[in-house]
Amino acid sequence: MNILISSTSGEPIYAQIVTQIRQLILQGELGAGTPLPSIRQLAKELQISVITTKRAYEELEREGLINSIVGKGSFVSGADQEFIKEQRLRILELKLKEVIEESRQLGLSYGELTEMLKLIYEEEQE
């Protein structure tokens, strides 16, 4: 399992861990039931604090991607891909709602917002 932490990216370290483990799970590299390193083990490997790692695991647990069993450690959850995708879609919906709220405050119309979305989407793809 490769996890690479950048201390200069500005993204919080716990978020970097969440993103990377999530990706590994969704891409199927970590199958259901795969044990993850213990919180302290991972903290040691990455030379970061225990609490940061704990926070990342908690986040992953909330998303339903991993299960933690007291005394046994954390495992990739048995949830099927559909469930995980649904979960993530729900998160995405929430974020979109925030965007819509923000654009209303700024007085952007639906058309302007989709235009903006399209532009940024294309930019990111390059």
Binding site: R40, Q41, A43, K44, Q47, S49, V50, T52
Partner: peptide, 30 residues
């Protein structure tokens, strides 16, 4: 950093350190 993080693998062990140079040890501090 490796030695210290190894030390607290056992959840009963704790570390307190002082430093005025905040760029080295604090990466592992909780």
């Amino acid at each position: 950093l490796d030695l210290l993080t190894e030390h607290i693998q056992d959840e009963k062990k704790s570390i307190l350190f002082s430093t005025h140079n905040t760029t080295d040890l604090d990466r592992i501090a909780d």
